[in-house]
C-alpha cells in the first residue's frame, strides 16, 4: 500500500489566542505549534494500513513555512517513511489554493490512499481533502470514523445528524479522518531518533493568492455574565418566568 498523508502545522489547541498588531492574524509570539490533531488520526491510519499490508510506503506532505519540517519530523517519528515540505511563506486563507498546491504534488504519484484530517484546528476551513479529490478526480469520503478495506474496495462510516452513514468506495481514494477512527500512537524515542535520518524533501512553492481576503481577526464578543436566579429547586419558577418573559425562548 502506498499512502500519502497531508499534514498541517497548527498552533496548539491550548493556545491563548492573541491577535497580532495587524488585526488580521494570530500573534505567534510564544505559541507552541503541533501536528494538527485530526491529521494524527490520518497518520496513524496510514501506518496501520501499511503494517497490515506488510509492505508499502507512507509519505507525509505539508504545505507551510520552514518550521513545518518539525511537524513532518513528528509524523516521521510516528513511523512515516519520508516527508515532503512544500515550503511557502505567509498565511493562506483560501483552502482551494492549498488544495491546488497539494494536488499538484500528489498527481500521478500512484498512491492507493491519500489521507487528510477532517479539518485544521486553526482556520477550520474543513475543505482541503475533498477539494484535492475533485482536482485529482478521485473518489472521496469525508469525516471517516470507521474504515474497512478489502482489496480495491473500501467501506467507511461517517457520522451524520441522527445516525451513521455507511459508504462504499473504490480505491485509489481520498479520505478525511474524524476522531474515533483510531488512537494515534506517541512517537517512541527510537522513532524520534530514526526520524532524524529519514528523507525530507523541501520544495519551494508559491500558491496562488486565492480569492479570499482576510479583513479582520477579532476576539469573540464577550458574554455578559448573567444573573444567579436563586438557589435550589425553589428558584425554578423564577427561571421559567425569565426564560419566557425576558429571554423569550420558551
Amino acid at each position: 500500500m502506498k499512502i500519502a498523508v497531508c499534514i498541517k502545522r497548527v498552533p496548539d489547541s491550548e493556545t491563548r489566542v492573541k491577535i497580532a498588531a495587524d488585526g488580521r492574524s494570530l500573534d505567534e509570539a510564544g505559541v507552541k505549534f503541533i501536528l494538527n490533531p485530526y491529521d494524527e488520526f490520518a497518520v496513524e491510519e496510514a501506518l496501520r494500513r501499511k503494517e497490515k499490508a506488510g509492505t508499502g510506503e507512507v509519505v507525509v506532505l505539508a504545505l507551510g513555512p520552514a518550521a513545518a519540517q518539525e511537524t513532518i519530523r513528528t509524523a516521521l517519528a510516528m513511523g512515516a517513511d519520508r516527508g515532503v515540505l512544500l515550503q511557502t511563506e505567509g498565511v493562506h486563507a483560501d483552502g482551494l489554493e492549498t488544495a491546488k498546491a497539494l494536488a499538484a504534488e500528489l498527481k500521478d504519484a500512484g498512491f492507493d490512499l491519500i489521507l487528510f484530517g477532517k479539518m485544521a484546528i486553526d482556520d477550520h476551513n474543513h475543505q482541503v481533502g475533498p477539494m484535492v479529490a475533485e482536482l485529482l478526480d478521485l473518489p472521496c469520503v469525508t469525516t471517516v470514523a470507521h474504515l474497512e478495506i478489502d482489496g480495491a474496495k473500501g467501506t467507511a462510516e461517517r457520522e451524520v445528524e441522527g445516525g451513521v452513514e455507511v459508504v462504499e468506495f473504490p480505491l485509489p481514494a481520498v479520505l478525511t479522518t474524524d476522531k474515533g477512527l483510531n488512537e494515534p500512537r506517541y512517537p517512541a524515542l527510537k522513532g524520534i531518533m530514526a526520524a532524524k535520518k529519514k528523507p525530507l524533501d523541501v520544495k519551494p512553492t508559491a500558491p496562488g493568492p486565492g480569492a479570499i481576503e482576510i479583513l479582520a481577526l477579532t476576539p469573540p464578543p464577550e458574554r455578559q455574565a448573567g444573573k444567579i436566579v436563586g438557589e435550589g429547586a425553589a428558584a425554578v419558577p423564577e427561571l421559567v418566568r425569565l426564560l419566557r418573559e425576558e429571554a423569550k425562548v420558551l
Binding site: 455578559q224 448573567g226 429547586a233 428558584a235 421559567v240 429571554a247
Partner: peptide
C-alpha cells in the same frame, strides 16, 4: 460556567432538574 450563563441556579441538580422538567411539561 456561571461566567457565561445568562441565568444560573446554584443547587443540587437532582433536586433542580426534576422541578424544571415538571414546569416545562406544564408549559
Amino acid at each position: 460556567i456561571f461566567k457565561v450563563a445568562d441565568y444560573g441556579i446554584v443547587g443540587d441538580l437532582f433536586e433542580v432538574v426534576p422541578k424544571l422538567t415538571e414546569a416545562i411539561k406544564k408549559l
